[in-house]
Nucleic acid binder design. Structure first.
Lengths: 157, 157
DNA sequence: CCTCCTGTTGCAAATGATATTCAGTTAGAC
DNA sequence: GTCTAACTGAATATCATTTGCAACAGGAGG
């Protein structure tokens, strides 16, 4: 299983950077992995707190997510208002996101051309890209359908 | 001058939405326009506070920037950590940004293809786009040059 | 010009995400 | 096992942003 492989690499990363191997850190990875592709830290903290045996405090979750970002297994993918939505990337290829501003649904998509453009633009400006983020905010098909429903109800079916 | 035109349109916008025409709001627009293309609110607040005659409180600046966003003259273009960088768009066509993570320099660029992709991807997902934001984080040419200088100095010129 | 109602302002306090401090606890090198 | 540096949890601090509220000011109608 590739989660195990990831953990082993993370362990090596920790060792190489003078960090210690603690149970909590690996339990947090398990939680993130089983939570779903996208998460917010406060959400994760609440979820963990609700479990039978709480494995880590708020501070530890924040600290571990930061480590995972440095390691490269977690990425900040959406910044909306004061919310930060993270993604457990774990080897997934880079991709972008459509965000429904009505229901919060997140749709992933990949367009190779975007990477090509990034390279072209950066070269033009002699700029060395480290990472990028493309967020498209809008209304998803479900929410559009719902609005249509509501309109019908208002008019009187 | 097109700033005047913008103000007139904003005045109409305010009237249409049941808001009042106050001196402060227009003075804030002047400040934003003379500040430069990109600004952060706290920065703007401090700058305004340092003027001979302080024209608006922190809350009013925040509230006015929000109105200007609804109106469409101001846009959140970069979210980095807990910082939000705004742009005074005022009719400028949509474009994207390169952000130097060393010195904070912001470089604007436009690629029509990005708009085309957005439309294509959104169509595929039956998603109605409202706005988007592409941020490319990296190191600008100046900072790369500076690093090169430092390396030379360390080695001993 | 006066009056009244509603939106606006400034301040202080609240909020919410995230960072930090510190004292007690552990990992893991020797 | 011993020792030290890194880690943890709880409380506290910080920083951007929002909100409650009392005083104030547009602007519509007279």
């Amino acid at each position: 299983m590739q989660l195990e492989e990831l953990k082993q690499k993370f362990e090596k990363f920790l060792r190489q950077n003078g960090h210690k191997i603690t149970k909590g850190r690996f339990e947090i990875i398990d939680k993130i992995a089983s939570y779903g592709p996208h998460f917010e830290i406060e959400e994760l903290v609440r979820w963990i707190a609700n479990q039978d045996r709480s494995i880590a405090s708020r501070s530890t979750v924040y600290r571990t997510v930061r480590l995972l970002q440095e390691f490269g297994a977690v990425r900040e993918v959406i910044k909306l208002g004061n919310r930060t939505i993270y993604e457990f990337t774990a080897g997934k290829p880079h991709h972008e996101h459509l965000i429904c501003v009505e229901c919060g649904k997140i749709i992933e998509f990949y367009k190779e051309e975007i990477e090509e453009f990034q390279d072209k633009v950066c070269e033009e400006h002699n700029f060395t890209p480290l990472n990028h983020r493309l967020e498209i905010f809008g209304i998803c098909s479900d929410c559009k359908a719902k609005k249509y429903e509501n309109r019908r109800l208002e008019v009187g079916a």
